[in-house]
Structure formats: C-alpha cells, structure tokens
Design a protein around this nucleic acid. Structure first.
Lengths: 237, 237
DNA sequence: GTATTATTGTATCTAACCGATACAATAGAA
DNA sequence: TTCTATTGTATCGGTTAGATACAATAATAC
C-alpha cells in the first residue's frame, strides 16, 4: 500500500480548489480524464489547489501539465461552483482509510471548497497519464460512459461541454485536439463529438473552407478503395 | 466622520470575494453602479465576501439586493479573477486613514483575494442606492464615462459586458432592464446599448416579433406628432 | 378641415447562408 | 476493366437579415 502525503494546509489558499475537464480526441470519440480511487470505488475529475504565490490560471495549467505530460494546452475557465455543501468528507475519509492513514474530522481537506472549473483541450496521442498522490489510477472515459462522480463533478462536465460548444466556432477548438495534419473528416468528427449531433458533410466542408483557417497539403492514402482525402493543418497565426 | 466597522475575518471564507457589475437602463443608456470613496478618490465595483454557511450565488444575490433595494434580479456569473497580485493594500489603507481607523499590515483585508465576477440586471426605476460601510457614496455611470477603477475592476466590466452580449438573445435580457410595459423602440435601445452598435429598425422588429415572446397591449400616446407605438410586455413564463 | 411632419408597422427585394441533392473524380479491390 | 466507397464541388430551394418602400397615424400648422 502506497503511503500517502496530504498537501500542506499552509501552502495553499484555503477553501479554494480547481477542477479540470480534460478533453482528448482519440480519432473517433471525445474522451475526458477521470481519476479512480480504486479500492474506494470513488471517481473524480483531476483537480488541485492554488498556492499563495500562484495565479489561478497558472495553477490549473501546471496541474494539467503534470497530470498529462503535455505543455500545449488550450485552457478555458468555465464556471465557479460555490454551493455551501461542496465538501467531500466521505470520499477523502475512505481514501485515507484504504491507505491506513489517520485524518481528523477538522482536517482542512474535509472542509468546504469553492471550485473553479476549467476545460482543457489536449492532443490525445501525446498524453501519458500520471495518477497523483491519492488516486490509484487514471483513465479516459467517453462522455456517455462516465462513472458516478464525486460531488458536483458531473455538473462540471456538463458545464464544460456547454462552454466548449459555445466556443467551438471562435476558438479553433480542433487545433489542440487533432494532430498536426488531419483530414476534413477528422475535423468533422471532432465537431460532431463536441456538438453531439451529426453535421451535413458538404455544408461543413464549405463552412470550414470559407473560414480560410486551413492549409491544404498532400493527399492521405489510406489503402481503402476510394478517393483519398486531402490532409489539412491550421494556418499559423 | 463616520466610524467604520470592518467585516470580521472569522465570518467569511478567507481570500474569496465577489464583485458585481450591476446594469440598469435609464431609458436611453446602459448604466452601472460604482462605489465612490470620496475623500480617497478611489472607485470600485460593489462587492463583498461569502459567509462560511452561505452559497456563493446567494451571497452575491443578497449583496446586490442590499445595495439596490431590489429583489427581482437577473444574476449571471461571468468569470473568476485569480491573479496573485489581486490585493488592494493602498485603497483600503487610504480609506482607513480618512476615517482615522488603524489597520495593520497583516490584516486579512489587505491580503490576496480571488474574486468571482457577476453581472446583475435590475430595473433602474425601482432602485434606491445605499452606500455600504466603507463607501461614502454610490452612483450610476455610463460605460463610456467610467472613472479609474481599483484593481482589475475595469476588466470585470469588460468581461461582464461581453458575457451579457453573448447571452442577449437567449436570456430575455430586456425583462429586468425595462419596466413592465415598453415600446419596441425601448427594447431596441436596450439591445443597442448592450451590443454597442446600431441595429436595423425593421429587421429588429421582425426578429423580436418572430420570437413570439411579447404580448402587444394598447398604444402609447406620447403627445408627439406621429403614429403612436404599441406597448408590449414579455409573455409570462 | 386640410396639409404637414415624424414615427411606426409591415411588405417586398436582394444577398448570404444552410440543407439537400447531384455528380464528377478518384483509390483500391474484384 | 468494372465496381465500390468516399471525397470535393456545384447547384437548387428555403430561410434569414439588410435595404428600401410605403401605408397608417398622432399631433401640429395653416
């Protein structure tokens, strides 16, 4: 059993946390990162705390970076959750119990937390997921196969998806979710996964090309018996 | 000189604040509420702190309610500002000095604050503005006549306006900014003030009527030498 | 009364955009 | 060479917004 070391109270802004809905695209489906506390059967979004000498945005950025090993992250703040019963007494106690760790009832981690929710877009292929101090493992989950999540983390996922949907046309959302070069179908798959609906192929292609944000490269020969699609990349800014 | 009483540290979540961009519409122009610390020449958005046994949303709602005397408020969270140098040492010290009040360098109010920014839409006519403990007066300012604001409050105003603009079509924004009955021109003025651009009269009227959210009432005779406009109200939900 | 004026409510024309459909251009398999 | 699935693009019809036109009308001027 791994010995756990809880974060020190005095290093962090008390009662404040962040949680990140980390989106990746595996080529077909949109996935998010979920931490698993295996022995306790608890699941949660990756999150963390903000140091006294740290910007909120930077704390989240570094947190996501540490967990995914990725430094090219598109990060957007979604919403701050501040309900007074946002406290995870049960979960943390279970985790500590499993690890034979004593935790007092008045421990700061058992108190109320306000949490700022962000979404992060990253390149699925480059990720190497690292469990943190407390979680035993970590994995990718599709939006329709999420386990029961602690606290209001399910609501956070909904909010993150909602904000992502609203941003999809103006924030070049595909850029971080796709590899350098991709086909029009890849991009359409990303859009459809995010918007959770089918799009009309011809209208989608026309709209994206009209935006004038893509560069067309060589064709991609897939070995399939049909016309080969062009590869595209995003125009450099 | 009014004796000031600072809020007690132990009642509130430390390092956490909220600020509200309170919008009202005076019939022609969009205005926001700004607090004035007269002797110190400092200006700020109305804000406050969150009690340990209070939801974040409720804290903001009650804060806005207390300051405006209004209970019909449309409140929306905009953004959480968490830069590490969000602290107002100078302003608070100046205020205390003016009031002959001693404040120590390590007083909790002088520390770093994360602040959650909200916008509030209220009926301008029903408001009676109340200065709080620390501010000497409070007033309405047009967006283009704002004084220099403390910390990042100017940025908060921009963010609030941006979020309001994005919400304008789906959140029935006019409902709280206008009196019970209003003309189409009134509503168009609200839209133009928020979007900060002129709209085409005929297209605006057509779009709003097509939404089917208004009830048409009697005409409004203004005494002017031209056709009298109809009065409308929002359909009850 | 009648003409005048400013504004309102609505209809019409046109350009832009999207969904639907059609179709030619393939890359590879049969 | 034929066949199949997919891609890239053009075209048609419906919807929407800006531009324009115009009738309706409330008060004033005459």
């Amino acid at each position: 059993m791994k010995k756990i070391v809880l974060p020190k109270k005095e290093d962090f802004i008390p009662h404040l946390a962040y949680d990140a809905v980390i989106f990746g695209f595996n080529g077909t489906e949109l996935k998010i990162v979920i931490l698993e506390y295996q022995k306790t059967n608890h699941f949660a979004l990756p999150g963390g705390f903000v140091r006294h000498n740290q910007n909120l945005d930077e704390a989240v950025y570094q947190g996501v970076q540490n967990r995914t090993g990725i430094s090219d992250i598109q990060l957007e703040q979604c919403h701050t959750f501040g309900h007074q019963n946002r406290r995870d007494k049960k979960v943390l106690k279970d985790i500590c119990e499993v690890h034979d760790h004593q935790i007092k009832d008045d421990h700061w981690l058992l108190g109320r937390f306000i949490s700022v929710c962000y979404y992060a877009l990253i390149n699925f292929e480059d990720v190497s997921l690292e469990p943190d101090e407390l979680s035993d493992s970590v994995g990718w989950y599709g939006l329709d196969e999420l386990p029961e999540l602690m606290l209001d983390h399910k609501e956070m996922v909904s909010k993150a998806l909602e904000v992502l949907q609203k941003n999809i046309d103006e924030k070049l959302v595909g850029m971080n979710l796709l590899p350098e070069k991709f086909t029009m179908k890849d991009l359409q798959n990303v859009y459809e996964s995010i918007l959770q609906k089918k799009l009309v192929r011809t209208a989608f292609q026309r709209k994206i090309l009209a935006k004038d944000i893509l560069v067309r490269h060589e064709k991609k020969y897939t070995g399939k018996a049909h016309k080969a699609p062009y590869l595209y990349s995003f125009k450099p800014v």
